[in-house]
Amino acid sequence: MDKKSTLKWLAWGMLIAGFFMASPLWGNAGEIPESLELQSLSELYEGVSFDHLLHMDMVGNCAACHHHGTGDPVEDENCARCHSYSKDTEVVSCGSCHPLEPFSPEYLREKEMDANRYHRDMPGLKAAYHQSCLGCHNEMGGPTGCQDCHPRTEAGDALFRAGAYAPESGAAAGHH
């Protein structure tokens, strides 16, 4: 019984992992996507339809968001300390390095087992997106409200006790 359910979970895990591994088709050089569906938060928020082309036109420099392009040398001085002669990387998608679950026991163990690891303070994918997007939007005057980029789902409303799930006492509630 136990074995069976473990197998079931394993199968699901592999299916999901396979899905994530297969999705970044744009990882190959030369295939720059015009738009991206960012779905990693899709439980509480709807996915973000990210207009890659628009942002490319506006920023004009891949390395401003990605740490590195597929052909250009790294620009960040701190990265260049080690990576100035690194080979061209094949993948530039955020999710190819930033983990979906940066604090899972497995990932933490993996990080700590590797004594020579330099990148031990790597934000998870969600944090990488938000730090990069919101950081720039704050500086450039882009939209910064949560729902400006991704409207909340019903599950999100329930968590935030907002919309249909707002407390009845609502706005009238004075705080002690």
Partner: peptide, 18 residues
Amino acid sequence: AACNKEQKLPEPAMPFDD
């Protein structure tokens, strides 16, 4: 908001996005 749900705390006086 996440703490409220996880710890099954009572409904807040105002929505968490206020």
